[in-house]
Computed example of a mutant assay.
Amino acid sequence: MRPLRYSINVTLDGCCHHEAGLPPDEESMRYWTAEMGRADALLFGRVTYEMMASAWRRPASGTWPDWMDEWEVPFAEAIDRARKYVVSSTLDTVDWNAELVRGDVGQAVHRLKQEPGAGLWVGGVTLPRALADLGLIDEYEFVVQPVVAGHGPTLLDGLRERLHLELVDRREFGSGAVALRYRPLTGPASR
C-alpha cells in the first residue's frame, strides 16, 4: 500500500493561501523537488490542478518562461512530468499527464493507495481536508513560513475531528521557514 502525503506551505497563523507566505527561494524549491520525488503521482482538486498547470506546465514552445529562475526549472520539470489525478465533479476532461477522478473520493483514493509504489502526494486546501476527515492521509508535511498573514484560508479549516500527530522529521531553512513532517497517531491512515 502506498502512503498518501499532504504537503503544503503555511504561515505562522495557519494561512495556506499560495500568495500569503514568502515567495519561493532556491532552498525551498530544491526541497519541494526532492519531496515530489518521493511520490509516484500527485493528487489535486480542480482549483489546485488549474493553479499548478498555469504556473508549472511546460509551454508548447518547450522553453520555460523568462520569469522562471534557473533554480525553479527542476521543480517545474518534476511537476510537469509527474502523473496526476484530479478530483473534480465540474471538469469534463483533464490533460497534463492527468486522469480525472469522479464519484466517491474516499473509495477512489483508497483504490489509488492500494496500488504498489512509493506514494501519492496531495496538495491544496479543500481536497486534503476531506481526505483528512476520512482518515486517508498517512503523512502531513507543512513548510511553516515566518510570516503572519492575518487573513485567508487556514490549514484544514472545518476538520470534523482533532488530529493527533507525531513529529517524525524537522528541517530548518535559511529563510527562517521550517519543514515539519508528522504522522497520525490514530485512525485508518496510521494502520
Rank of each mutant, 00 (worst) to 15 (best):
R129T: 02
M29I: 12
V105L: 01
W71K: 12
L100R: 07
D157R: 10
G62N: 13
R191P: 08
R2L: 01
M52I: 01
S54E: 14
T33W: 04
I79R: 09
D13Y: 08
R46H: 07
H110S: 11
V101N: 04
I79V: 14
L165R: 07
Y49D: 02
L163C: 05
R191K: 14
D157S: 15
L159E: 02
T93A: 13
T90F: 03
P23K: 00
L165S: 04
E19G: 14
A108S: 08
N9L: 15
E50W: 00
T186F: 14
G187N: 07
T11Y: 04
Q145W: 05
D13W: 09
F44C: 01
A177N: 14
S190Y: 02
L131H: 04
P188I: 05
T48D: 04
Y6L: 00
L167M: 07
R2K: 06
A20L: 06
L112S: 04
T154S: 11
R30M: 13
P188H: 12
A132Q: 05
E19F: 14
V86R: 10
V147R: 05
L180K: 06
P23T: 06
R181T: 14
Q145G: 13
L180W: 12
R81S: 15
W64D: 01
Y31A: 09
V87P: 06
E19N: 15
E19P: 14
Y49P: 09
E19D: 15
V144H: 06
P116N: 10
S28E: 15
M51E: 14
K84D: 06
R111D: 09
D40R: 00
A118E: 14
A82W: 00
M51P: 00
V144S: 01
Y85V: 11
A130D: 00
F142S: 03
L91E: 09
D133E: 11
D157T: 08
L155P: 05
I8N: 01
H164V: 14
W64K: 11
S89D: 10
N97W: 07
G14I: 03
R38N: 07
S190C: 10
D66G: 10
V122R: 00
L43D: 08
P188W: 06
L134F: 04
S7C: 12
G176K: 07
D169G: 15
T48W: 02
D66Q: 09
V87Y: 01
E50S: 08
S61V: 04
S61G: 05
W96C: 00
G152A: 07
A41D: 10
D104E: 04
F142K: 03
L42A: 05
R83F: 03
V101Q: 12
R160V: 09
L165F: 03
D40F: 08
A118Y: 15
V178T: 11
H17D: 08
L12C: 07
R129L: 05
R183N: 10
A76G: 02
E141A: 11
E50H: 09
G62C: 06
R111N: 11
R83V: 10
K113E: 13
E35F: 12
E115A: 15
L100Y: 10
E77G: 05
R162P: 13
V87T: 09
T154E: 11
Y31M: 10
V168N: 03
P23N: 03
L12H: 03
W64S: 07
L136R: 00
I137D: 02
V122N: 01
L163V: 02
G119D: 12
L163Y: 02
L22H: 07
G135C: 01
Q114H: 04
V109S: 05
V101C: 12
